[in-house]
Design a protein around this nucleic acid. Structure first.
Lengths: 224, 224
DNA sequence: GGGCGGCATTGATACCGATCAATCAGCCAG
DNA sequence: CTGGCTGATTGATCGGTATCAATGCCGCCC
């Protein structure tokens, strides 16, 4: 999941694997805290997230970290470059994953339809990352955080009574490293949104969107 | 071209098209200032840059701009997402381009070898963009500019006497929109590098690298 | 040659977000 | 329940980059 330019709210439907029938390997289940792969590992499998949440990260020698993306249901992670993984990937929320062989992406011989689906997923990934560039390079802290909540609301928000609830399983540090901010700034920005009654914070991992229109406006850079 | 983590200096050799033989369309030549495609256009061709420089940009409604990448010799531009272009692309330096049909990327029927090459290029693109995230999200102005010059030096620098020359055909505004800075900051950073005798500025579009090691150190965030 | 226009540089200042530091809250172990 | 640990929040301050403004540079056209 990247922070892309908001369009119309998306469906937020259940994810069905690309091939429900005889996809070679069975679904995998991974507990929170476990790792799927590390930077430098050679790629054997790609994974489509069915349920749960993954975290893809990259580190600099001096300790600076970038969260590249979060893997939400429907997302496919693990695209190889020169046959290798270029991020670490671990599990934030216990996940069910559909593995696909790297060979299904890289050559269409076995299953042309699956090959096509994986290729299209890679191409959509490029486009989504381009949008994310705009966010990292050009948006202010409040725009970043508002955009982040908006995207998650569309992807995994749930209507509870009058308001939409969004789970944030990741830490404030993860959000900061994803958006190119510090934890303190993320925290302050949440507080600011809470005080202006645009969101409420039910518990540290759940925000309730009180004024979705105002939140969307902030994400687009409208001056309040 | 993205600003990736510097590794060993790369070859900087001439680019040969993926298929020199019967690649269906002949090489195209495009003058500086002309556009290859616009955001929203449906994708018919991908282009490999043989010579010259392209610029890929994306705009927000309020005028904020992000330069997504520069297309340098060897780069392939125009990857579709849902069949559409998601950036504008125009020519900075008159270019020779090798076009490939979108169908050669999306289905391998016609030319499996070309299909494979285009697919691998798309996958490398994803990896390079991940590196670029780190740059946009976590690096300071001086690290960004130093990294930018280092990458261009590896890609298209030329040794002239004792020093390496790097052409910067794009404007300061382009560099700023690429690195997530303002023109003023880019300009000041160049001045700072010049005053500390790490680079010299021959003319506005040519920098001479006087102390490559110092430049590389700055790009990695060493406190000189 | 002279003037104009666009881009780059430089300067002064403002402000956003980082940094450093001090609680605070939740959670687990004993 | 209590103490300690970890992550979040809040506060005070600093600094880097943006912003606003003036000037400089250079190419181009009349």
């Amino acid at each position: 999941m990247y922070v892309t330019i908001p369009t119309q709210p998306s469906a937020n439907a259940d994810v069905t694997p690309l091939r429900n029938a005889h996809t070679i390997p069975a679904e995998a289940r991974l507990k929170a805290g476990s790792y799927l792969y590390f930077e430098g590992d050679s790629v054997v499998w790609l994974y489509q997230v069915i349920t749960g949440v993954l975290r893809l990260t990259r580190m600099l020698e001096d300790g600076r970290r970038q969260v590249i993306s979060f893997g939400y249901p429907g997302d496919i992670v693990g695209f190889p470059s020169d046959g290798l993984h270029h991020t670490d990937c671990d599990v934030l929320v216990t996940a069910r994953l559909q593995p696909y062989r790297r060979s299904n992406l890289e050559c269409g011989d076995g299953d042309p339809e699956l090959h096509q689906k994986l290729l299209q997923a890679a191409l959509r990934e490029i486009s989504a990352m381009q949008d994310h560039f705009m966010m990292l390079g050009r948006k202010s802290a409040i725009e970043k955080v508002a955009s982040f909540i908006c995207v998650l609301s569309d992807r995994v928000g749930r209507d509870c009574g009058a308001y939409r609830h969004v789970e944030l399983p990741m830490s404030r540090t993860d959000i900061a490293d994803f958006l190119g901010l510090t934890t303190e700034t993320v925290s302050r920005t949440f507080t600011q949104l809470r005080k202006s009654k645009i969101i409420a914070i039910d518990n540290i991992h759940t925000v309730i969107i009180l004024r979705p229109t105002a939140l969307l406006a902030l994400s687009l850079g409208d001056r309040e």
